[in-house]
Simulated scan of single mutants.
Amino acid sequence: MDKIAEKFPKGVLHALIGEKKFSLSRLQPSAEIGYFVQHYWIVRWDLRGQAPYSQVVIAHPNVNLVFEKGASGIFGVAKTTSSHLLKEQGWVFGIKFKPGGFYPFLQAPVSTLTGGVIGLEEVFGIDTNQLEAEILSQPDDAAMLRLAEQLLTAHMPEQDPNTALVADIVQMIQQDRTILRVEDVVHLTGMNKRTMQRMFDRYVGVSPKSVIQRYRLHEAAERMDQGTAGDWLDLSIALGYYDHSHFIRDFRSIVGVSPEEYRQYK
């Protein structure tokens, strides 16, 4: 069982506060399952004797299959942010599919899941509560991972070449900070814009424009958390915005507060 470096991913808001409240582990899938799955993740917390803590995330463009006591399910990409209330003691085990990686299991546009959650019964024909109890009762991370891999292996679809194509495009958007508009992706890939939009609707669940926006706001939040954002004009220019008012509107529409309110949060 290989562990990925346990660094909080971008998109976890106020990460310096969050890392004092919970721990995050990420585990590699097997080679075959790795065609569809980005990684497994486990969040643990112990806030006994402390106030509950709400962790907010700017969602990545990934479907997650989550096992948590009384709240398990298959979660589509959140439209804005997603939040999770941590209280007392607990843990969550999750399967993070690659962008496009859940479509071969679902065999329906992933956009039908966007902003929502469904039970395992609807995709895998398995009782959600029963599998939740089995996975969360395992003695260690490796045992939980084995059960998850058994589930996916038993329902393994054929590899869809569009899954790898979409995952590569999303990774390019994430890593190439010069990509600021959908037209930039069209230029780099040579794909027709409308074809790309249809593919993202079917395989990812959100538009290419939304994916670009999410990753740029991930960058903004990280810089603010680390105290390296500078003024809003400089930050907006660095993120590819034409003016800082556009950046501020985007940030507020997704995060729910202005950049200044976010930066002042302690």
Results as ranks from 00 to 15, higher is better:
3 K>Y: 14
8 F>P: 10
11 G>W: 02
19 E>F: 10
22 F>M: 03
28 Q>F: 12
29 P>N: 10
30 S>L: 01
31 A>W: 11
32 E>H: 07
34 G>M: 04
37 V>N: 00
41 W>N: 15
44 R>W: 00
46 D>Q: 11
47 L>H: 08
52 P>F: 01
62 N>E: 06
63 V>E: 01
66 V>M: 03
79 K>E: 12
80 T>P: 04
82 S>W: 02
84 H>K: 15
87 K>D: 05
87 K>T: 08
87 K>R: 07
92 V>R: 13
95 I>G: 11
99 P>S: 06
100 G>E: 08
101 G>Y: 08
104 P>G: 11
105 F>N: 05
108 A>D: 13
124 F>H: 05
132 E>V: 06
133 A>H: 13
133 A>K: 15
138 Q>L: 11
138 Q>F: 01
142 A>S: 13
142 A>T: 09
143 A>R: 14
144 M>R: 15
151 L>I: 05
151 L>Y: 06
152 L>S: 02
152 L>F: 08
168 D>Q: 11
171 Q>T: 14
173 I>T: 08
182 V>Y: 09
185 V>W: 10
186 V>D: 04
197 Q>L: 09
201 D>L: 05
204 V>L: 03
207 S>M: 06
208 P>W: 06
209 K>I: 03
213 Q>D: 10
215 Y>Q: 07
218 H>I: 09
233 L>V: 13
235 L>D: 06
242 Y>E: 14
247 F>T: 07
247 F>L: 08
248 I>A: 13
248 I>W: 01
250 D>K: 10
251 F>Y: 01
252 R>P: 06
253 S>Y: 06
253 S>Q: 13
254 I>N: 08
255 V>D: 02
255 V>P: 06
256 G>E: 00
261 E>K: 14
261 E>A: 15
266 K>T: 08
